[in-house]
């Protein structure tokens, strides 16, 4: 035995080889990963832009300036303009309550916040229809009082909020646990009031994590399809968001129009990814562990 190890040390293989794959294995694995991602991720992305520009940039811009397309863009902006800030407020409130206090049922609360991740968006929409649709007692009353929720803007906002509900809270909770509450307690001892502590101590500490959560929440909110499809009723020019309009145009074989709007959302996705990577790269220490890589 000692003989073998002696010869080995004489041959002296490159340092660290023992805990590393050979260059050939590495090259094969890298190529494999690149090939699979090229087919699965990059090809669809390219396809969106290729199809959108099939008749030239002019045609696709013209398609986007149609009244139907413009009202869809405005509706999507309006929905996210309400849903995302609401979920940000929820996320901050939930993270503050969960990380700064000790109370019974905390684990249950965390589970309930995560619940929308394991519920299908279509089932989420179904739940809202059953609760607030015109043939439920609550929904019937709402329609009678002139505020229909289902097949109207409030329903779309609620559906969007449901599917994006955990995003901000999930990002903030781990960050705020890690930061602890010593700084806030110090500020309190020095006589600062609650709001002042939050504004001047907590908020600066969590701002990048908050932005990160809002970014992901926004991307999902603008693109949500399943839940919105169920509650929107797909009324042209009224309750058709951008993804719903894509579906309607696609089913009418308006390929350029559908893919032009899809390209707009794909651009949004790319901007989201760039900003997300910048945040991860620049402020890694201020994001939750799952966001650092």
């Amino acid at each position: 035995m000692s003989d073998v190890s002696f010869t080995r040390s004489e041959v002296r293989p490159a340092y660290r080889k023992a805990a590393d794959e050979t260059p050939l294995v590495k090259a094969v694995l890298v190529l494999l990963v690149v090939a699979v991602l090229a087919v699965l991720l990059f090809a669809p992305l390219l396809a969106v832009f290729a199809e959108a520009l099939a008749d030239g940039l002019g045609a696709s811009l013209a398609a986007l300036s149609q009244p139907e397309a413009r009202s869809a863009i405005w509706l999507t902006l309006a929905v996210t303009g309400v849903a995302v800030p609401m979920n940000a407020i929820f996320g901050i409130a939930a993270a503050w309550t969960i990380t700064k206090f000790d109370f019974r049922g905390k684990a249950l609360l965390l589970t309930l916040i995560d619940l929308p991740f394991s519920v299908s968006p279509v089932v989420a929409g179904l739940c809202l229809v059953l609760l607030l649709g015109a043939n439920s007692s609550l929904g019937g009353w709402l329609v009678a009082s002139g505020v229909p929720v289902i097949f109207a803007l409030p329903g779309i906002i609620l559906a969007t909020m449901f599917v994006t509900f955990p995003f901000v809270a999930r990002e903030l909770v781990p960050v705020m646990i890690e930061q602890g509450k010593a700084e806030e307690e110090a500020a309190l001892t020095l006589g600062a009031g609650g709001w002042r502590v939050f504004r001047t101590v907590t908020l600066p500490n969590i701002r990048w994590a908050l932005l990160y959560g809002v970014l992901l929440c926004n991307a999902r909110a603008m693109g949500e399809f399943g839940a919105v499809a169920v509650v929107s009723g797909k009324i042209r020019g009224e309750t058709a968001t951008m993804p719903i309009t894509i579906e309607m145009m696609y089913n009418e074989y308006l390929s350029v129009a559908a893919f032009s709007m899809a390209a707009l959302l794909a651009l949004l996705a790319l901007v989201t990814l760039v900003l997300k990577s910048l945040l991860e790269w620049r402020y890694a220490d201020q994001l939750s562990a799952s966001a650092r890589h």
Binding site: P44, P243, L273
Partner: peptide, 17 residues
């Protein structure tokens, strides 16, 4: 960065693509 594309790309867009 690209690994997160399916999170960021709306599902309807992915579907037609």
């Amino acid at each position: 960065a690209a690994v997160d594309l399916p999170f960021a790309l709306p599902t309807a867009v992915a579907g037609i693509a």
